[in-house]
Design a binder for these strands. Sequence first.
DNA 1: CGCGGTTTGGAACGATTGTTCCATATTTAG
DNA 2: CTAAATATGGAACAATCGTTCCAAACCGCG
Lengths: 193, 193
Amino acid sequence: MPWEKRFDVGETLTRAMHAFWTRGYEATSMQDLVAATGVNRASLYATYGDKRALFLAALRKYDGEVRGHTLQELARARAPAEAIGALFDKFIGQTEVPGNNWGCFIINTALELAAHDAEIADVVNAAQDEIEAFFLAMIRKGQAIGEFDPNRNAGLLAHQALASLLGLLVMIRSRPERDYLDGVRDGVLRSLR
Amino acid sequence: MPWEKRFDVGETLTRAMHAFWTRGYEATSMQDLVAATGVNRASLYATYGDKRALFLAALRKYDGEVRGHTLQELARARAPAEAIGALFDKFIGQTEVPGNNWGCFIINTALELAAHDAEIADVVNAAQDEIEAFFLAMIRKGQAIGEFDPNRNAGLLAHQALASLLGLLVMIRSRPERDYLDGVRDGVLRSLR
DNA sequence: CGCGGTTTGGAACGATTGTTCCATATTTAG
DNA sequence: CTAAATATGGAACAATCGTTCCAAACCGCG
C-alpha cells in the first residue's frame, strides 16, 4: 500500500555530500541542500532526519566509498610503491578539474567538527586508522620484496606517511597547484627507499 | 577631547581569536564573541568593523605572533634538529592543557575558508611559505654541520616536513594523544638523518 | 564647570537559520 | 474504483543570525 519515493535516495545523498564537502557543515544551510539536491525540505527531513543526521549519512557514504573500494583496490592491484603513490595521486588528480580543490571530505570534517563531536570523531579516526594500516601493509610488503629499505621502522614510516597525506589534503584546499602537491608524494616515496 | 576605549583592544582581540580558533568562523556567532570578549556589540563593530574583519584581524594577530616570534626565536637559539623538533613540540605541548586540542588557527582556517576566500588564502599561504622556509634553512644548516645527511634534496625534505606538520595539526584536532602525535615528530627527524 | 565627541548598553532591524505542519497529490492494495 | 497510506510542495514556526541605530554615560579639553 505504501509508495516509493520520487527521488533517488542514493543520488540525493551524493549531491548533499558534495555540498557539505565543499563548504563544510556550518556554511551549508538546509536551503543550500534543497537547492543542491532538488528535493523538497519535508522529504529530506522525512528521509534522513535532521541536518546533522544527513551530514553523518553523507560522511559515512563517502567513508564507505573511499575505504571500501579505493584502498582495497590499490592494495590488490599494484606494487607497494605504486599503490602508495596512487593514493596520493587520487587526491592530487582531482584538482585537475577546475575549481575542484575540495580535498578529502573526512579530513575537512576532522578539523571542523571532530574536536567537538565524539560521534564524528569516531568516523574520522576509524578512517585514519584504516589508511595508516594500508600504508603499513604496503611498506612491510615493499620491505619484503626489496622495494623499500628493510632496516627502517615500518610503523613509524606508516605513521609519517599518514601525516604527509593529511598535510597534502590541507595544501589542496589552500594551494591546489600541481608541483606543490607532487612534491609531497615524491618526498614520501623518497623517504621509503 | 576624545576619549579612550574602556577595554583593552589587544586583549579583546586575543579573546576573539581564541573563540574563532576553537570553533571556527561559521560556528562562532557575534553573540559568542560578545560573551567571549566581554565587550559590547556596538563597540566590537566600531572598533573592528564587521565579523569577517574581526576574524581577519584575529588571524593576522595569530600569524604575527607565531611567525614573528616563534620561528625566529627557534632558529636563533637552537641547533637545527632541535629547532625543528621544538616547533612540532610547540603544538604537541599545548595538548597537555586538558581540552586544548585547538591545533593551529591558521591551518584550521585553511580548510574552512581558504578555498572560498582569496584574501584569507593569502594569509594562509604566506604563513605556510614562511614555515617551509624555516624548515629549509634549518635543514641546510643541519646538512652543513653534519647533523643531517647532506646528500638529500633539502627542498624536498623541507616540503615534506611542512606536509608532516600540517598533518600533525589535523591529528591534534581529532586525536590529541601524546604518542600518536610524538610519532610524527620522530618520523620527520628520523627522515633527515 | 560645561561643552564636544566617543563609547557604551540595549533595543531593534530584516534576513536567514533549522524545523514542523498541513492540505494536496499520488500510488498501491483490495 | 475506492480506500488506505505516504510523499510532496509550500507556508509557517520560533530562534538566531549579522548588523544598525539611538539615547545615555563618559572623559578630556577649554
